[in-house]
Each structure stands twice: as C-alpha cells, then as structure tokens.
Nucleic acid binder design. Sequence first.
DNA 1: ATCAATTATATTGTGCACAATTTATTTTGG
DNA 2: CCAAAATAAATTGTGCACAATATAATTGAT
Lengths: 147, 147
Amino acid sequence: MSDALHLNNQLCFKLYTASRLVVRGYQPMLKELRITYPQYLVLMVLWQAHEEASLPLSLKALGDKLHLDSGTLTPLLKRMQQLELISRVRSEIDERQLKIDLTAGGLELKPKAESWRAKLREPLLCHEQQLRELASQLDDFIALLGE
Amino acid sequence: MSDALHLNNQLCFKLYTASRLVVRGYQPMLKELRITYPQYLVLMVLWQAHEEASLPLSLKALGDKLHLDSGTLTPLLKRMQQLELISRVRSEIDERQLKIDLTAGGLELKPKAESWRAKLREPLLCHEQQLRELASQLDDFIALLGE
DNA sequence: ATCAATTATATTGTGCACAATTTATTTTGG
DNA sequence: CCAAAATAAATTGTGCACAATATAATTGAT
C-alpha cells in the first residue's frame, strides 16, 4: 500500500493541525484582550514570574522558556511595549541584557485571561481525563525530541 | 497557588512547542530537498492524490485537506511553481478553479522524502507504541475541537 | 433569461518563526 | 592587563498563517 507518506498517518501533521486549532479557539479571548497568541504566551511567562517575584526577566530568559530567539522576540516585545503591556529596559549591571517587566496594563489582563480560560475550558470539562493524558504524552514526546 | 495560567500546565503551549520541535527535526530533509515544511505538506497531499489518480486538485480541495485558505496557499503555490514542483492551471470547466498538478520535479522528490522519513523515524522506533498512542489521542482531540 | 446569492481565488496588511549576520558587551585565559 | 572567545540583542530577509476585503465566475430562483 505504501501509505507511509499519507498525510493522515503523519504525527507531524496532526500536531500542526491541533496546534492551529487550539490557537483558533483562543481567538475570542485574544480579540477582547487585543493581543496575539504569542503575546499571550509572553504574558503567561511574565505573570508567572510576577507570582514568583522574579521580575524583571531578560529577553534571553523569556526566550528560553518559550524556545524563541531574539529574532522573534525583539519585534514582538517592541509591539507589546507600544501596547503598554510591558517595559523594556537595559540592565545596568550587564548592558547586553534587556530586562522585560510587566506594566500595570499587562498585569490587568491576568484576571481577564483567567476567567476566559475557565470559559474556554468549559465545553472540554467532560474530557478532563483525556486532555490530561494528551498533555502527559506531549510532555514525554517533547522530552524525547530533546526539549 | 492559582497556577491555572502556569505555562507548563497549558496544553496549548505543549502543542505549540511539540509542533515546532517536529518541524525542526525535519530541517535536514527540507534543506536537502530545498523546500519548506508547508511545501512538504502540500507535496504529501499531491503525492497521495497521484497514487489515487485524482490529480489535478483544485486549490480549494488542497486547502480543505490542509485546513489552509487561499491567503496562505496562493503565494505558497506560486513559489512552488517557480521551483517547478507543481503546475497551476485554470480549470476550463469552471474558470474560478485553479488546478494544481505535480510536475516531474515534484514527483521526483517523493522517493527521497520516503527514505528521509525512514531515517528520521529511526531514533524513535523504540517508542513506536508511545507515538501511536499520541497520534490516536491527537485524532480524538482534533475531532473534539470540531475538525 | 436575469440578477441575487454563492463559490473560488487573489490581494492586502499584520504578525509571527527562524536562519544568518551584525553589533556591542562581558568573560576568560595567558 | 589584554586579546580572543563567549554571550545578548538587534537586524535582515524569507516564508508562512490568517483576517479582511476584492474580484470574477457560476448557480439558482424567479
């Protein structure tokens, strides 16, 4: 049969599709918050760092968590600064580093995101166990590919 | 604790990360074949259609399989035409439709991709069952989100 | 037969991803 | 101390994704 290259047999395509579908699901929230999905990911890192009192974060530290480099983050963070969600300041200790911090505006979005997240999860509640399994398998897979 | 928005607890972020990691894994093949990952997906659809003797495909039919619209596909297919991997011809029956067909050049890449795929899977062979599970769970998840 | 609705593709504009290179700063080994 | 290596960001350039809109061909209901 030789369907090795059959699209629907390819894990890569399933991941690509699932990832885009999820982002699509976030659109109502993102539209209301007036941010993009990658910007939402950045905010999640910063909200979390805020909880842990480890703000500000360098661009590098942020990029390590998201697996993104300065080529992606530099323009993205400039846009977020324009939106007054974050601040971008050179470290005085090490002039190479750019310190990223949350502004009041960026912090304000957190409770809104939390309530949206609850709302978006609602239709999936009855599949909680299935989602937990998927998440766990993805963790293994990501570890397998070398993280 | 309130770690609902913790990055590592978010399925969406795992999918986003896993998807990008896989594409990264394909880079050696893509570099040799001188194509991008989305172009590889298009070729997979066309190779499969070729097997089923259902070429040419309209842009619409291609987009339905990949869940991509003309905004993405039109420029992508134009580039693939430049690379002489595909042909783009208006349907004579319905002038709205653009028929996409494989060229000899596009067909030539298939055996190369097949052998690359075998090589790329090699290090994962011992996790065959785990990958099959993940694929199956992704199918369920994609169906859950409405496909 | 005609025109309104539908369908297929193209276009425009924004924002990632990422490879490759550049610039500036800091660290380190001799 | 100093030059070479390492590190952190920025820049440049290409190619998706996708929303929104435009254009043109076809269909369908009257």
